[in-house]
Design a binder for these strands. Structure first.
Lengths: 131, 131
DNA sequence: CTTGACCTTCCAGTTACTGGAAGGATTACC
DNA sequence: GGTAATCCTTCCAGTAACTGGAAGGTCAAG
């Protein structure tokens, strides 16, 4: 499939896919006879994974780490497992932090009357004079 | 407190705090007699919130949105509530995506024998010849 | 009273894209 | 067969969000 189809299916802009190839985050794509890049289902899976990871605040360097689990077939299973478990710990931490932010916002939403009165008790917490 | 203390407590580098002031993401800090920036507990709370949000993949523009909930005291409660609920939906989406990534990695870790044999069945999924 | 760790501003560099130009390939229509 | 629209290519420039470093003022310790 062409790059625009891979872009649609993975959620990454075509520009970004080419960029990832440029910086060596993904292997150079196969080329069709006309010189166009050619993508398969596996490529799209990988790109989608990258798309998610970047959206979720992993850096490109983090992504290289994540991908090494897939692409480095020579790595010992024990190492793969250890690295995967580390990444899972990272993800759990992010989930916990999102949970905290969520509860901050939920408290805020909850304390707001939801009517038209412009008084939210929690606003005092952050606005107004410093200490 | 000085900027370095605010940095330590919020988790944001001092550089970044000044940068956020520059771009108007946070209000200019009060100044001490010597011209040093002066921060209070509320400022630190706000900076910590920003630190979390940025880490979790919210853009600076998103952060402005999130902060408007705190800083715009004139906003009607109904609006605050609506925006907060939208942000919560964003966060829930992120949590769901992290959950997906987590399960991809967990499956990977699980399928690895955890010994020294270099064969991970799942590696086939992404590596090797394209489709 | 000076050494070292702060702070200030300003400017240049980095990361990770993102947009646009210039030009070739493909499809769709007359 | 021509041509207009829509792909694709590379390359280069610009943006977002920092990040590091220079140049210089401030402050607490010995």
């Amino acid at each position: 499939m062409n790059i625009s189809e891979a872009a649609t299916q993975s959620g990454l802009p075509a520009k970004t896919i080419r960029y990832y190839e440029d910086i060596g985050l993904v292997d150079p794509a196969r080329r069709q006879d006309n010189g166009y890049r050619d993508y398969g289902v596996r490529d799209v899976h990988l790109l989608r994974f990258l798309h998610r990871a970047r959206n979720l605040g992993f850096t490109v360097a983090d992504c290289r780490n994540l991908l090494s689990l897939y692409t480095d077939g020579d790595r010992h299973s024990a190492n793969v497992k250890a690295i995967a478990l580390n990444r899972i710990a990272d993800i759990d931490q992010k989930i916990a932090e999102l949970g905290e932010m969520r509860s901050v916002l939920a408290t805020l939403a909850d304390k707001c009357h939801g009517d038209d009165r412009p008084d939210c008790p929690i606003l005092d917490e952050f606005s107004g004079a410093g200490e």
